[in-house]
Amino acid sequence: MADEAGNRNAFLIQEHYCSTNAAPVYGRMCKAIAGGLTRASAVGARILDWPGEPTRDALPLRLFGGLHALVLAGADDQLAAVYAGTVTDEHEILAIVERTLARHGDTLMPWLDGPPQTNEPGRSGALMMGLIEVVREHGPKVEILEIGSSAGLNLLIDRYRFDLGGTMFGPDGAPVTIRPEWTGPPPPRVPLEIVSVRGCDVAPMDATDPAVAARLAAYVWPETPERLIRVRTAIEMVRQRGVALERADAADWIEARLAEPQPAGVTRVLMHSVVWQYLPEPIAHRVRAAMVAAGERASAERPIAWVAMEPDRAFGHQVVRVRSWPGDGAWRIVATAHPHGSWVSADSSREEMASVELPAAAKIEV
């Protein structure tokens, strides 16, 4: 049964998340919509009558992706002023949004049909902190298995250049350099060789398709035009040389990959970012079980590791966790990060956020 109050509250939850992550445009839009959205349009009615769990479904960002697509296409000048941050009054924002929903309802309605596809290359900078921890413990060579790869832009992690607090990784001359704002000690300069990168997604996107490229651009938040440039450059990198991305259920795929022969001297790494919240619990349970079973078989010659960047709702940002085998397989925090990787903190004082297991419940998509 639809819960109008709960559906409005999803926008307030997202507003909090935006306010803690330097996203005032979407923060203002969330507050305006939560306080005054009506059923005057079919889109407005669908939002207020949303039958699912709106936070888990990332309902606000489904809508905002569609609205941003209109702005990027030059289809709505008034809405563009909201996205540019020149219209800041809550009542004026609501009036513009209501008018846009009525005028562009046929275009916007399909954006509510599926979850956001925020395939952000900047997250690779945070994930690198997990990989660095893995190679410090198990040796320089890793093979990466990513679940929830979306369009595969983080499968380019071996082709990006990284400046992590002044410590450099990756190939010189890479088209994309990921340079997050840094807090805490920089990581050590350790040998790191990514021997292979493969990924899967239950509904992978072809980044080389112009419609998909436009969709990915629409999910970039308006406050960060540098992200839009980076996403478009990463897409061009995929056009020049593709990535190993398969359509598959996460549990089926990781079970099959873990069953493959593993080269000696190479750590096999499960990697994911802002994915866990979307996995149905039976799938998440199978992934956990497969990793624990692989960990029990692991040896010094053939280690297993898990690197995860997932949201922590209480703190409003991402936590980068690592576990590996042989060893106790316990989770440990190596960094916290902005949802899109614009900052990374290696401040060890954040260890109080460690949890025994990745949460099964939804957090918030960004």
Rank of each mutant, 00 (worst) to 15 (best):
V135R: 01
G105T: 06
G74N: 09
H16N: 12
D113V: 03
G52L: 07
A95M: 03
K363P: 05
E90N: 08
Y26R: 06
V25C: 04
D113H: 13
T267P: 01
Q240D: 14
P261T: 11
A300P: 01
A151D: 02
R227G: 05
S355N: 08
V231Q: 05
R268D: 04
V344D: 03
E310I: 07
W276P: 04
E92N: 08
G105W: 01
V176M: 02
R332T: 09
S349D: 14
L279Y: 00
Q277Y: 01
W306L: 07
V274K: 00
G170P: 01
A34S: 13
D113A: 15
F162T: 02
V274S: 03
A290F: 05
K141R: 15
S273V: 12
R286Q: 11
V344P: 01
A354L: 14
M109K: 04
G184M: 00
A259N: 11
L63Y: 00
V142A: 07
R323K: 03
L108Y: 00
G341W: 10
P188V: 10
R232K: 14
A213L: 05
C18H: 12
G130M: 06
A42Q: 06
E133T: 13
H16S: 13
T20S: 09
V266K: 06
D3P: 09
I194H: 02
A218K: 06
E365C: 07
L270S: 02
L245Q: 12
V134K: 02
G36K: 03
G341D: 10
R189V: 00
G125W: 00
V275W: 01
A217F: 03
Q318W: 04
E255I: 13
A305R: 00
M205C: 01
R297L: 08
A293N: 11
R230I: 11
A84Y: 07
D57E: 06
P326M: 00
A80G: 14
I194D: 02
K363W: 05
T88R: 14
G44Y: 05
L112S: 11
L72R: 15
H104Y: 07
M128I: 02
A58R: 03
V269M: 06
V266R: 06
V43R: 10
I96S: 07
L358T: 09
A217V: 10
R297Y: 12
F162G: 01
I93C: 12
R232Q: 15
G329R: 06
S19T: 05
P175Y: 13
E246D: 15
R350L: 09
S273N: 10
P210T: 10
S149C: 08
Y160L: 02
G327F: 11
V142Y: 12
D172N: 09
R323N: 04
V322F: 13
Q277H: 05
H91M: 10
I364M: 15
L156K: 00
S324L: 03
S349T: 15
E146H: 11
A102S: 13
L59M: 12
V176E: 00
G152P: 09
G65I: 01
H91C: 10
